[in-house]
Amino acid sequence: MTAPRKPFFPADRSIRADDSPLEIRRLGLVDYQQAWELQAELAAQRAADEIGDQVLILEHPSVYTAGKRTQPEDRPTNGQPVVDVDRGGRITWHGEGQLVAYPIIRLADPVDVVDYVRRLEEAVIEAVRHVGVVEAGRIDGRSGVWVPASDTRRDRKVAALGIRITRGVTMHGLALNCTNTLDFYDHIVACGIDDADVTTLSLELGRQVTVEEMTPPLLDALEAALAGRLKVADHTFAEAPDPTKGLPRAPRQG
Rank of each mutant, 00 (worst) to 15 (best):
A127Q: 02
T92W: 09
W36R: 04
D12T: 04
T70Q: 05
R119I: 00
A136C: 07
V85I: 14
K245R: 15
L203D: 15
R118F: 02
Q54H: 13
R90T: 07
D155C: 04
L226E: 03
M214T: 04
Y32T: 01
V83W: 07
P217S: 09
T152F: 08
I165Y: 08
V131M: 07
L99Q: 10
I188K: 11
D109L: 10
A101T: 12
P251Y: 06
H172E: 02
L222T: 03
A160I: 05
R119L: 04
R154G: 11
R153M: 11
R156Q: 12
A190S: 15
R138E: 15
G246N: 10
I51N: 00
T199R: 05
V85L: 13
D140N: 14
V85Y: 02
G144F: 08
L38R: 14
V111S: 11
A175C: 10
M214K: 09
R229Y: 06
E23N: 04
D84R: 11
A221H: 08
Q33T: 13
T200N: 07
I51D: 03
H187I: 02
L174I: 13
E121W: 06
E126D: 14
R90V: 04
G168Q: 07
G67K: 02
A190D: 03
L22R: 05
V169M: 05
L161G: 05
V63T: 14
G28V: 04
V147Q: 08
E126V: 00
D115T: 04
A149Q: 14
R69W: 13
V189Q: 13
V158E: 08
A123L: 05
V133Q: 03
V63A: 12
K157I: 03
L226P: 00
E135M: 01
A66R: 03
Q34W: 00
Q33G: 12
G168K: 07
R142T: 07
V198N: 05
I165D: 01
G162Y: 04
P217I: 04
R142A: 04
D109F: 03
T92P: 15
G67P: 10
D194K: 12
W146S: 11
V83Q: 13
R25N: 09
Q98A: 10
A238Q: 06
G89Y: 07
L107C: 06
V55Q: 02
T215M: 14
V113K: 03
P148C: 10
T166E: 13
G88T: 07
S62M: 01
R69N: 14
D242Y: 12
T215S: 14
D12S: 11
V131E: 11
V189W: 00
R167G: 01
V30W: 05
H172Y: 11
L38N: 06
P217N: 13
F9W: 13
P248I: 00
G67T: 00
P241S: 09
L38F: 00
R252D: 08
P7E: 10
V124E: 03
K157V: 07
R90C: 06
G97I: 09
D109K: 15
D112I: 08
I91N: 10
R156C: 07
E213N: 09
L205V: 00
A238N: 12
A149S: 15
D242C: 14
V30S: 08
Q39M: 12
G228Y: 12
I105P: 02
A101W: 08
S150T: 13
Y185S: 06
H187D: 15
D31A: 11
C191H: 08
G89P: 11
T70I: 00
T166P: 01
V232S: 09
I104C: 09
L247W: 05
E122V: 02
N177D: 14
P241H: 01
